[in-house]
Design a protein around this nucleic acid. Structure first.
Length: 338
DNA sequence: TCTGAGTCAATACT
DNA sequence: AGTATTGACTCAGA
């Protein structure tokens, strides 16, 4: 699993990670394909049950109202752990599965791994241990939810260069470079094709993402990585998004010599080494919070103010953090068709 | 004031 | 070391 936020990548579906464990469980005569299929059914049906108790579902008849979700949140946050548990937590290397769960396609949702995350793969944000595992160690992130503990955001100082590139190569001025790369393109750019060309060229030229993104696009490596994975169609891009592809399109028109000039041009930071900026640490939702957020997202990807406030309070986070979660989630789910 | 798109930039993952 | 992920910030538009 290479993500914690439910965005699944190809590897999540390959089944490679849990295969060994499953094979051990079912034995060499077991049909691993069926086991995996069964387990996925278990997971998808029971996951939501946890978030919508039967009564609520009957009453609301699939209508997942904010009220229901808020009540559910209250239940979850006040629930004490049951005593009989066979599940285990997050480390995919040590997944344990109750074999009967797999064979009978039934889970005792009272006290068995209700998300089926014992299998690890279906929900990439791993095991749901919220209020379920009495053996949870004292320092479990569960406590962050129950006791309203807030994850501390530590700050540190670190030299920081503001990316304000200035080309100093005498042969080619920054204006010229900008002019060449930002020359508007008439018509439509095939973004996928351009990205494919760029990646091919990068490989051949031995240029990595960081260098290309910073020197040519004046963007960050991370951003390049994102847009390269699944290029947005030209018509759907806004002006800033288009300009990045214009640069790549124009880049491919340059001769290797011109490219090299630009790539080898030194960059100077405008504000020099005076820069010392606070380095933030990136907050990460504890997995239990992620479970709840994703559970809610599954039934309501657009929570209203009340739910958001409620979540923020229970998680001891700001409502902006909750809002951002759903915002980013919706956007990325749409982007990657999840 | 709320959203989505574009990004940044820390940091998780390979 | 290079790439992917993702919380949060910025800007426009409604």
């Amino acid at each position: 699993m290479n993500t914690t936020n439910g965005i699944k990548t190809a590897k999540d579906f390959e089944g490679y990670q849990e295969e060994a464990t499953l094979k051990e469980l079912v034995g060499k005569n077991g049909d691993i394909e069926n086991v995996i299929e069964d387990s996925e059914n278990i997971i998808s049906s029971n996951f939501l049950d946890f978030f919508l108790n039967d009564e609520a579902v009957e009453q609301a008849d699939n209508e997942c109202t904010e009220k229901n979700l808020i009540n559910m949140l209250d239940d979850i946050c006040s629930e004490s752990p049951p005593s009989d548990v066979s599940g285990t937590i997050s480390n995919p290397e040590v997944i344990k599965i109750d074999e009967s769960m797999l064979r009978e396609n039934v889970v005792d949702k009272e006290n068995k791994d209700p998300f089926g995350n014992g299998l690890g793969a279906r929900w990439s944000y791993n095991v749901a241990s919220f209020g379920l595992y009495p053996d949870q160690p004292e320092n479990s992130a569960i406590r962050a939810i129950r006791s309203g503990e807030k994850k501390r955001i530590l700050k540190a100082k670190k030299p920081y260069n503001i990316p304000a590139p200035v080309l100093v190569n005498p042969d080619i001025s920054s204006q010229e470079v900008t002019h060449i790369l930002d020359t508007p393109v008439s018509g439509v750019i095939n973004t996928k094709e351009v990205m494919g060309d760029i990646k091919t060229w990068m490989k051949k030229a031995g240029i990595n993402q960081t260098k290309f993104a910073e020197k040519v696009l004046e963007k960050t490596q991370g951003h390049f990585s994102v847009i390269s994975r699944n290029p947005t169609p030209w018509e759907e891009l806004l002006a800033p998004g288009k300009s990045v592809f214009v640069r790549m399109y124009n880049w491919m028109k340059l001769s290797e010599e011109e490219k090299n000039k630009i790539l080898s041009a030194e960059k100077v930071s405008m504000k020099k080494d005076l820069q010392e900026k606070e380095k933030k640490t990136r907050f990460t939702f504890p997995k239990e919070q992620m479970e709840v957020l994703m559970g809610i997202y599954e039934v309501n990807d657009r929570p209203g103010r009340e739910l958001i406030e409620d979540l923020a309070e229970k998680f001891s986070l700001s409502s902006n953090q909750i809002k951002d979660f759903f915002l980013n989630r919706r956007r990325r789910a749409k982007k990657y068709n999840l």
